[in-house]
């Protein structure tokens, strides 16, 4: 599946009302580690049709970043059935990201 750009206006529909688990990647253009994590997150989206993958640009979506207390990027959040169930800060290997979604 392709990666969905998440904004304040589609967050409710794409994330909270999703019937699949959602992996959200909070990032910004000026963030080096985000650039390393980004292609791995893209791979996960391509390889796993059972996971919805979304990206939140913290510069464009300061309200969303504030709501989830994002204080360091990249930050990954996992949502299931409208609830945030897991989070991880910083660059982590692909297997750990998949564990985060499954866990």
């Amino acid at each position: 599946m392709s990666v969905v750009t998440i904004t304040e206006s589609n967050f409710e529909k794409e994330v909270l009302q999703s019937d699949k688990p959602v992996l959200l990647d909070f990032w910004a253009t000026w963030c080096g580690p985000c650039k390393m994590l980004s292609p791995v997150v893209d791979q996960i989206a391509e390889e796993n049709s059972a996971i919805k993958v979304g990206k939140v640009n913290v510069d464009d979506e300061q309200e969303l970043a504030g709501r989830f207390n994002i204080m360091s990027i990249p930050t990954l959040l996992v949502f299931k059935n409208g609830q945030m169930v897991n989070q991880s800060v910083g660059v982590i290997p692909k297997e750990r990201i998949l564990q985060l979604v499954e866990g």
């Binding site: 000026w30 963030c31 580690p33 913290v58 510069d59 970043a65 204080m71 360091s72 990027i73 800060v89």
Partner: peptide
């Protein structure tokens, strides 16, 4: 508190503060 206020990289996280 790493990632929840503690950071090792000012260039990376400054804009969040």
């Amino acid at each position: 508190y790493l990632g929840r206020g503690v950071s090792y990289c000012a260039t990376c996280d400054a804009a969040l503060y």
